[in-house]
Design a binder for these strands. Structure first.
Length: 491
RNA sequence: CGGGGCGUAGCGUAGCCCGGUUAUCGCGCCACAUUUGGGAUGUGGAGGUCGCAAGUUCGAAUCUUGCCGCCCCGACCA
């Protein structure tokens, strides 16, 4: 990669970090690689969580909770799984501290060594499948559709706010089924929920697809993902849904008796999305003034800023706003009245732009006579004067429009950044100069994918579902190919 | 773990190359006043082991050595 690209990446990284810090989503923490999610960021996460949780429940899933610690031996029961995660596990070896007899504070008590080390879960397949063994005997126990909201730890070498932190919050679903087809259907049902959530709630267009073998989840038969495109032209895997076949059932000996009284291993899926989606949101929509949040997820959808001279005017405005607030709340709109006297209006305008609040209403003394307020929308920064009558309804329509607009904007950007190419030279050039997804033929081998990654840093993001079948030649090896796949540099 | 950059008040920084009074400036903070339609203004005030340690020197933010930490890039990865 050239210096310029490195520089561009660096600038983009700093822009990204800046927005997160200034918008008050998160902070760096005392623990390297970990992150403090601040109340505003967490409120955003809660909104995401609530919507996903609702959809999971609508599709028959239940929440449960499994331990944070996994006995080391569990991890090694599924060969591919342990290989995938072994390099990034935090390990608990002792259970006690004591005062250093040689002085100098507190030390790990060498006598308190655990007989078997505990792994801090990087994902919960193993502990959950160990449990499922005791829950499943008959086809009557199936399907088992469980989800858990939890934190996991993956000791990555390099971290990045929200996108890759040592500890992160996520949801992980783990299901067991009587047939292979049922498990595949489940995997795809969830993929659809993720895609629908990304597009309708996050206003972020995604491509559903199948992962290549190289990118497959450790222990899965097939991995599906939703892939989004960020504003710097890099792809972001925003959610994964895995068809596990009978891999974990075999590893943990989970068998059931079917209707014909035959014993078989159960079929499984697992799937998850994480706080990484907040990172996706930041990179998909923000501009130089800060965050732009989709109205459906914004913790604050509307902020009202009073403009006044003296307490008398303030009181008049307060009274009027009180009426507005009731109207907004009646429509289920999340509204905040910022009448904090410590900051001036201009300061507040800038602050809520940073925070990505979709709609801002400024109301001043002179508006009281004219019955008109100024509304500003965050996505276009456009301002308009509207009547106070039916303001809540006006804003409701506007919120909907903003939601659509930022989706469309992101979609136009995404679509303009999917480029087809059939020559290697152009492939390299596109990656360096334009970025985005590159639709190209691939011979289907892991060797070619590895080689392409080595040469360009681009990986196969996915083989899109319902992909058009067309004859072609592999961009790198020239060998025959039946379909195009999507390459990109990725987070 | 490799490459690059950096560490001076809560935040951002100047000074360092070329050692020398009381360490610069902006934001923020406190008090009062005037202000309030796009990050207010004035006056006064508080705030510092110059990342840590050792060394050189009459004298170190500045030079030397070691260590620690952070950010960016790479390997790893959701």
């Amino acid at each position: 990669m050239s210096k310029e690209i490195t520089k561009r990446e660096q600038d983009y990284s700093q822009w990204y970090n800046d927005i997160i810090l200034k918008a008050g989503l998160a902070d760096y923490s005392a623990v390297r690689g970990c992150m403090v999610i601040k109340p505003y960021g967490f409120a955003l996460w809660e909104n995401m969580r609530d919507q996903l949780d609702k959809r999971f429940k609508e599709t028959g899933h239940q929440n449960a909770y499994f331990p944070l610690f996994i006995p080391k031996s569990f991890l090694s029961k599924e060969a591919a799984h342990v290989e995938g995660f072994a390099k990034e596990c935090a390990v608990v070896t002792h259970y006690r501290l004591k005062n250093d007899p040689n002085g100098g504070g507190i030390i790990v008590d060498p006598d308190a060594k655990l007989e078997e080390e505990l792994i801090v879960r990087p994902t919960s397949e193993t502990i959950i499948w160990n449990t499922y063994k005791t829950w499943i005997q008959s086809y009557r126990d199936l399907p088992l559709l469980i989800n858990q909201w939890a934190n996991v730890v993956r000791w990555e070498m390099r971290t990045r706010l929200f996108l890759r932190t040592t500890e992160f919050l996520w949801q992980e679903g783990h299901t067991a089924h009587a047939t292979s087809q049922e498990a595949i259907d489940e995997t795809l049902t969830i993929l659809d929920i993720y895609a629908e959530f990304a597009e309708e709630w996050m206003a972020m267009p995604v491509i559903k697809g199948i992962k290549s073998v190289n990118e497959r989840f450790a222990g899965a038969v097939e991995t599906y993902s939703i892939e989004a495109l960020m504003q710097d032209g890099k792809a972001l895997q925003s959610g994964t849904s895995h068809y596990l076949g009978q891999n974990f059932a075999r590893a943990f000996d989970v068998q059931f008796t079917d209707k014909e009284n035959k014993l078989d291993y159960v079929w499984a899926s697992s799937w998850g999305v994480s706080t990484r989606m907040i990172g996706a949101l930041v990179m998909a929509h923000s501009d130089d003034s800060g965050l732009i949040l989709p109205p459906k997820l914004a913790p604050i959808q509307v902020v009202i800023v009073p403009i006044y001279k003296g307490q008398e005017q303030k009181q008049m405005i307060d009274e009027k706003v009180k009426l507005f607030m009731d109207d907004f709340k009646a429509l289920g709109i999340r509204v905040k009245y910022d009448d904090d006297d410590n900051n001036r209006p201009g300061w507040k305008f800038a602050e809520y732009e940073l925070k990505g609040v979709p709609v801002r209403i400024a109301i001043g003394a002179r508006d009281m006579q004219s019955n008109i307020v100024e509304i500003a929308r965050r996505d276009t920064k456009e301002k308009m004067s509207v009547s106070m009558d039916g303001i809540a309804n006006t804003v409701q329509v506007l919120l909907k429009d903003i939601q659509e607009n930022i989706y469309n904007r992101a979609k136009v950007f995404r679509d303009n950044n999917i480029t087809k190419t059939d020559t290697w030279k152009e492939f390299e050039k596109l990656l360096d100069e334009k970025g985005g997804f590159i639709s190209a033929h691939w011979d289907g081998t892991a060797e070619t994918e590895d080689k392409i990654k080595e040469l360009t840093k681009a990986t196969i993001r996915c083989i899109p579902l319902n992909n058009l079948q067309e004859e072609g030649a592999c961009i790198y090896s020239g060998k025959p190919s039946k379909e195009r796949v999507l390459f990109a540099r990725a987070y």
